[in-house]
């Protein structure tokens, strides 16, 4: 298999590239359909998220702490009748031993009956992923939402 990818760092195979692209499409489809549990299941039990949406944007928040907040956030959107669309693009995947570091852009759209379709924000997302059977798991995620300002600490894709 010929490796593909960027000119920086070790690249992933072509099969892995398309597999990871699908991995992201599936998890965001679940989130936007309101299937919060399916979205949460892509995270390891000890995974962390660093973002100003949940936390201060510099301190990693453990899964046990972000799960209740995610349920609350999703219920809030549902109650208000807001449909979200997480559009993702511009992926890079870099191998680090048995792990993969991904970096990609997101566009967050919100849609409701009153305001119609609105662009909420653009964002940079960076994940550390590990293989889990035939799929993948997120070990850590950093989200820098542009509308909330840059995160306090530079994105450093922690590798544990």
């Amino acid at each position: 298999m010929t490796p593909v990818g960027s000119h920086r760092g070790d690249t992933v195979s072509l099969d892995t590239y398309y597999e990871l692209r699908r991995f992201y499409l599936d998890q965001l489809d679940a989130r936007d359909r309101g299937d919060t549990q399916v979205w949460l299941d892509v995270f390891d039990d000890d995974a962390t998220i660093t973002t100003k949406v949940i936390g201060d944007g510099s301190t990693p928040v453990k899964k046990s702490d972000f799960v209740p907040q995610v349920w609350k956030l999703d219920a809030s959107f549902h109650e208000k009748g807001i449909q979200r669309r997480h559009c993702v693009q511009s992926f890079t995947f870099t191998k680090r031993d048995d792990l993969v570091v991904s970096r990609f852009y997101g566009l967050f759209l919100v849609i409701d009956a009153e305001r119609g379709s609105c662009l909420q924000s653009a964002a940079m997302i960076s994940d550390v992923l590990r293989r889990h059977g035939t799929t993948w798991r997120v070990m850590s995620r950093e989200i820098e939402r542009d509308d909330l300002g840059r995160n306090a600490a530079p994105q450093n894709v922690p590798l544990g």
Binding site: V4, G5, S6, H7, R8, T11, L14, Y17, Y18, Q89, S90, F91, T92, F93, R103, F104, Y105, M124
Partner: peptide
Amino acid sequence: YSRIDQFYAVQMQ
């Protein structure tokens, strides 16, 4: 195709 996709991602980032 996938190399070009990632090339543009790296370049724009």
